[in-house]
Computed example of a mutant assay.
Amino acid sequence: MLTRKQLDLLEFIHKRVQRDGVPPSFDEMKVALDLRSKSGIHRLITALEERGFIRRLAHRARAIEIVKLPDSLGGTASAGFSPRVIEGDRPAGHRPANADSVEHFAIELPMMGRIAAGVPIEAISDVSTHVAVPASMLSGQAQHYALEVKGDSMIEAGINDGDIVIIRETEAADNGDIVVALVEDHEATLKRFFRKGNAIALEAANPVYETRVFPEDKVKVQGRLVGLIRTY
């Protein structure tokens, strides 16, 4: 039996991973549950882990995997839920003839170069190669592309230097989304998006980096993060 706070936290983590492909930070959990300190979140996380609902993965930033959900949240086990993170070798780019009926075939996406998870770099426009990703990582019929991450400004969102991020093309974003943002038509960066009145804040997931704020006409959203591939 879970307490109300434990259930609320499990639901928040589940929804955030389904949306972003990565779990929320302890700060985001603290705000979502209206707690005064992160120590309260730590106790809830420990309780959920002891009860077998989540698993924390060692040596990875903000790595939480949901193992099962209670009946009130759908009652699914880990087989029905998995974060959209692929580790190890990149999948082979083979698409079978009956691909439309196969859930986990690989689709080749254009690799558009590097995206800065740090200080923005020049805008990315040229396809340098292709990378194969599982079809289950992609969102519906939308167009997608891949980028290699350079820098550590999104490390607390579970995005490391050298990761391949999978981006769904869109010009719209909700507060808290991790997006590819084109700044002043010549710099591209991967950051959390927040709209504040007539301004756009691009927020890092690393306290070393300051949040950058621009007039809304200086920032164009070019896609939203839907998953990542990590190689070793």
Rank of each mutant, 00 (worst) to 15 (best):
S128E: 15
T129M: 11
D71K: 13
A116L: 03
F194V: 03
M137K: 03
R212I: 06
G118W: 00
K218E: 15
P96E: 10
M111T: 05
P23F: 04
H94Y: 15
G227A: 10
A61S: 13
I41W: 04
P215C: 05
R62W: 12
F26V: 07
E65L: 11
S128Y: 10
R212H: 05
E50Q: 14
I66T: 04
E216M: 08
V22P: 00
A172V: 09
G223L: 00
V102S: 12
L2S: 05
P215S: 05
G40D: 09
L225G: 02
S39D: 13
R230N: 10
E28D: 11
E11Q: 15
L57Y: 05
L182P: 02
A58N: 12
L147E: 05
M29L: 11
D217A: 08
Y145T: 03
F193I: 01
A92Q: 14
V131K: 05
V31P: 04
R192V: 06
A135G: 06
R168Y: 05
Q18M: 15
L9R: 11
I45G: 01
I155H: 07
V183C: 09
I115K: 01
D152P: 03
R230E: 10
G75P: 07
A188D: 12
A204C: 04
V165N: 01
V165A: 03
N175M: 05
N98Q: 13
S153P: 02
A132R: 06
Y209R: 06
L44T: 05
V165Q: 02
A205K: 03
E171G: 09
A97N: 13
A106F: 00
L228G: 07
V119F: 06
K150C: 08
I200S: 03
E65M: 09
L228S: 11
G52K: 12
N98W: 12
G118A: 14
L35V: 11
R95V: 11
E187L: 12
